[in-house]
Each structure stands twice: as structure tokens, then as C-alpha cells.
Nucleic acid binder design. Structure first.
Length: 485
RNA sequence: GGUCCCAUCGUCUAACGGUUAGGACAUCAGGUUUUCAACCUGGUAAUCCGGGUUCGAUUCCCGGUGGGAUCACCA
């Protein structure tokens, strides 16, 4: 009752080093779901403190990906907000101020060691089978020596000095407490010689300044977690809650990466995946609602998401399951909704009405919209090739086959152009004609399908006839009858 | 190698310390259909190993094994 309700603020903090795959976006998804579930705020922050690794267009692709998935930042580089700027390269002055504070409080120190010395040190350590670690040479520098070096313009970095207490405890919302020996912790760099902060500094400072309450990030950050805790401690700041998410693993084992076949999320759209399917699939990679429901919309995910449902073990990225989700969403979507994305996989220059019909009759056969291009060519061709070997039903003669086709043509001729627009009319007319003339479906419908599609596997002839239109349907039947003689 | 994390069907996962260990994907079989899909029904398939604690461990503790992450002036 007397507890003040604090607004939940989560963030997604990618670095612009290229196109992100599903791993990064899953972190964004969870952060977003958690914030939205509690009417909180979801922030996008760009961690561009490494100019060398930054790739042009990355921020755009992050925005494109989020938009496609339906994740909308409340604050960010484009949205603005009262805690901006939201790109770290624009916050350099803030970090300098906090570095000075650490220096003054002896939680950090200048280091003038040349890269060559550090390399040598590392080599010597690994040769001695010891973990690589800075030897704190510059920690022994006197204030005068430091002053002198600075005055001489020597290049320097600022390193974090680990706490003097022998142990340090971290707390993760998923994994609980972990005890660390401070002697095992390296005095890593906080401020690089180019004046840019490293991740460790910028991340901690920004999470504090932006009033982040919950940090969702990958498990790969666990080893540096104690350093971040120590930094918060050095500043005397209250820690946000941390949730280190299980990794997404590739099928071959190991962390999912571009190298191991991870597809950039923004490319998945052009491979025929539906965003709803990707969201649903992603959500279940490391989380579950503890019910048997498998299909969730974004709104349902927001409603059901909780940290308790998160899993600790890494999850293998299974394309089969993604494809199943995708197929499910394709089968259940109206053609209208699929139209725009599906057009990419169909030949241009035809009417939306035709495209929609084609989507309608083919969608149950798709696991990805991209498959449309391989299976629909028969619908667009002007002169369909008929293989007379597959045209007859079972052992029927060419003559009987021609008769059967003629029967279909006559029955279909009775359907007016307007009635043709309703698929059921075509089916009903043909089936009734077959019944009243005391015939069986197979001998009539099989050759009809082949006449209309040139294939042995296809949607039903009624559907194809509907999509083709009356004139084209009749033309194809006539052509097939000719092929019989 | 040091440190840390993790461990249920092939895969994603469920199971107040007491269940015939459940669901989904994949797979297999059958049904439906003019074909292929879709759809429906059913089957095969898992608690890493060894110790404890307990009347009773998938579940709690310890050890082992296995997998993973991380050890940059990258994030």
C-alpha cells in the first residue's frame, strides 16, 4: 500500500555493427513485453561507442526490424524523450564527467601502458597457463608521475579498479546469487584512448541516467556482470534488476551467429516469413506461458509474459518449428492480408484480384510465401504443356479421357461469368453433373486437373478453374482434348 | 587453461517432493479427398551419471560428466 509504484523502464541497446539476427531481437521482444505488460516504457538506445566497428545502415535496419515485428520504442534516437540523446556517441561529455568522479574516488586509474606491452604481458601469461589479466602497473604511479605524463600528452586509458573486498555478490532475477572473487576480476578499460567510453562504462551510466528498472540482456554478459555491479557500487547507485537470458544456439552447437547460418531478421521478410510467426516463435525460444497454448498474438504475449516463465538453458534455433508457425499463420490469414508481402514472389503485371485468388487456393500448401514462386507458374503461363501420360485417369484410353474433358467443358459452359466468381458454384455444378449422369469423380476430375494445371499435384480443379476464369479454363480444356488425339 | 552459467523425448518445453513424466515441432501409421497439401485419430520417443537427504526424488544437496559463455582500448 505504502509502496510507491515505480514506472517500469526497459531498454534494447544494440550496437550498430550490421544486421541483427533473431537473437538480438528476442532480447528486444522480451524487454518490450515486460514493459508493456506493466504499462512501462520501452527504450531504444544505440551503443555506438566503437567507431571502427560501426556499419552504415545498421540503425535503419534495427528500426526496420522492430517495426516489422510490431515492437515500438517509446523513447529512442528517432522518438526522442527526456533522457536523450539516445545514441551513446552523442553523450561523450556525460561519460567524461563520470570518469572523473571515479578517478577522484579512486575507483579508477589512469593507465599509460602501450598496447605492445599489454600484448607481451598477455602472451607471457598465456604461456604460463595463467588467465590474461592487467598487472596493475599503472596503479603504482604516483600523482606526480601521472601529472607529468598527462602534461607530456601521453596517450592513456582509464581503468576500473576492482573493489578491495575479497568477494562480490551479484544477483540475477533468473539465476539468483553468484559469489565472485574480486582477485579474479580484471581491471578493464572504462575510457579508451580516443576518449570514447567502453561498453562497461557507457552501459552502466546510461542505464542509471535513463532510469532503467530492468535490464534484459544475453547470458554472454554474465562474466562481466560483477564489474558492472562494482561500478554501480562505486557510484553509489541503485542497481536495476538484471535478467540474463539464455542464449539461442545454432543447430551445430554454440551461440547463434551469422557465421553459423543465422539470418538477419530484416531479410526474413523477403524469405516469406510472417512477422506474427517470427514473434510467436521467438517468444517461445526461452520462455513459455506454462499452458498448452502454442499460438500467441503480440497482445496475448504482453498479457502473459513474466520473468518466471523464462528458461535458463540455451535453446537451439529450430527452423522446422519456425516453419510450422509460419505455415500456421499463412493458412489462417485472409488472402487480403498476405497480398502485399506475397506479391514479391509472384510475377508482376497482373491484377490484385488474381493474386488474391491464387493466394487463396495455394496458401494451405505453403510454409513460406516464397514457395509461391515455384508452385504457381502454371497459373500464369499462356500455353500450358500437357503430358498425355498423366492426363488419363488410371488406365483410361485417350478417347475416354477426351470424353471426360468434353463432359467437364459442357457442364462448365452452363455457368455464367458472374456465377464463376463464386468457387462453390463451380464445384457444385460439376459434382451435380457427375452425379446425375451416374459417373464417378475420379475419371472426370483427374483429367480436368491435369488439363488445367499440367500437374498431378495441385489444388482442386474447382479452385484452379475459379482462379483461371471461365475463358482460360475452357481454353485449357480444349487444348487438352486436342492433345488426346 | 581460469572464471561463470546450464542439463526432461531428435528439437522447444510442462510437471506444490507423490503424475501411466504432459503438450508442441519433427517422425511413423491410419482416416478424409479426384491428387498434393490442409485437417482429424493414433503410435514411437526423455528425466546425463554417481552419491546423499527423505517413507518417497525429474524436483533438494554434493561430486562427476557433458554442453555453453567469457577472459580486447568489441559490444
Amino acid at each position: 500500500m505504502n509502496e510507491i509504484k515505480i514506472q517500469i523502464r526497459t531498454r534494447f541497446a544494440p550496437s550498430p555493427t550490421g544486421k541483427q539476427h533473431i537473437g538480438g531481437f528476442r532480447t528486444a521482444l522480451y524487454s518490450y513485453l515486460y514493459a508493456k505488460k506493466q504499462n512501462g516504457v520501452f527504450i531504444l538506445r544505440i551503443e555506438d561507442t566503437d567507431q571502427a566497428r560501426s556499419v552504415k545502415g545498421s540503425v535503419e535496419s534495427i528500426y526496420d526490424g522492430l517495426k516489422w515485428l510490431g515492437i515500438h520504442p517509446d523513447e529512442g534516437p528517432r522518438e526522442g524523450g527526456e533522457y536523450g540523446p539516445y545514441s551513446q556517441s552523442e553523450r561523450l561529455d556525460m561519460y567524461k564527467k563520470f570518469v572523473q568522479e571515479l578517478l577522484d574516488g579512486k575507483h579508477a586509474y589512469y593507465c599509460f601502458c602501450a598496447p605492445e606491452r599489454l600484448t607481451e604481458l598477455k602472451q607471457a601469461q598465456s604461456a604460463a597457463a595463467k588467465p590474461p589479466k592487467y598487472d596493475q602497473k599503472c596503479l603504482k604511479l604516483t600523482p606526480d608521475e601521472i601529472k607529468e605524463k598527462l602534461k607530456a600528452g601521453e596517450k592513456y586509458v582509464v581503468r576500473q579498479k576492482m573493489p578491495s573486498e575479497p568477494t562480490l555478490t551479484t544477483f540475477d532475477e533468473l539465476r539468483g546469487k553468484t559469489l565472485w572473487q574480486t582477485k579474479d576480476l580484471d581491471d578493464h578499460v572504462l575510457l579508451k584512448s580516443d576518449g570514447f567510453p567502453t561498453y562497461h562504462l557507457a552501459n552502466v551510466v546510461d542505464d542509471h541516467l535513463m532510469k532503467i528498472t530492468h535490464v534484459f540482456r544475453g547470458e554472454e554478459w554474465l562474466p562481466s556482470f560483477p564489474k558492472h555491479v562494482a561500478l554501480h557500487g562505486a557510484f553509489g547507485w541503485k542497481m536495476p534488476k538484471f535478467i540474463h537470458l539464455p542464449l539461442i544456439l545454432s543447430k551445430e552447437g554454440g551461440k547463434l551467429s551469422k557465421r553459423k547460418g543465422a539470418v538477419p531478421l530484416v531479410d526474413m521478410q523477403h524469405q516469406g516469413f510472417l512477422p506474427e510467426a517470427v514473434v510467436n516463435f521467438m517468444a517461445f525460444l526461452g520462455w513459455n506461458p506454462k499452458t498448452e497454448q502454442e499460438i500467441f498474438s503480440m497482445d496475448q504475449l504482453i498479457e502473459k509474459f513474466s520473468i518466471k516463465g523464462l528458461n535458463k538453458a540455451g535453446a537451439i534455433y529450430d527452423t522446422e518449428k519456425l516453419l510450422w508457425y509460419n505455415a500456421h499463420y499463412i493458412h489462417h490469414a485472409p488472402a487480403e492480408k498476405l497480398l502485399q508481402q506475397a506479391k514479391e514472389f509472384l510475377p508482376g503485371g497482373f491484377s490484385d484480384d488474381l493474386y488474391k485468388k491464387i493466394i487463396t487456393i495455394e496458401k494451405s500448401r505453403l510454409t513460406a510465401l516464397s514457395e509461391l514462386s515455384e508452385i504457381t507458374d502454371y497459373l500464369f503461363t499462356k500455353k500450358l504443356k500437357i503430358d498425355t501420360k498423366i492426363l488419363p485417369w488410371k488406365e483410361n484410353t485417350p478417347d475416354a479421357t477426351a470424353q471426360a474433358l468434353k463432359f467437364s467443358a459442357d457442364a462448365l459452359a452452363k455457368i455464367g461469368e458472374k456465377d464463376w466468381e463464386k468457387q462453390e458454384n463451380i464445384e457444385k455444378t460439376l459434382k451435380t453433373a457427375i452425379q446425375t449422369s451416374n459417373q464417378k469423380n475420379g475419371p472426370i476430375l483427374w483429367p480436368l486437373r491435369v488439363a488445367l494445371t499440367g500437374k498431378t499435384q495441385s489444388p482442386s480443379p474447382f479452385e484452379v478453374a475459379w482462379a483461371l476464369g471461365k475463358e482460360e479454363t475452357q481454353n485449357r480444356i480444349v487444348a487438352a482434348i486436342k492433345a488426346c488425339s
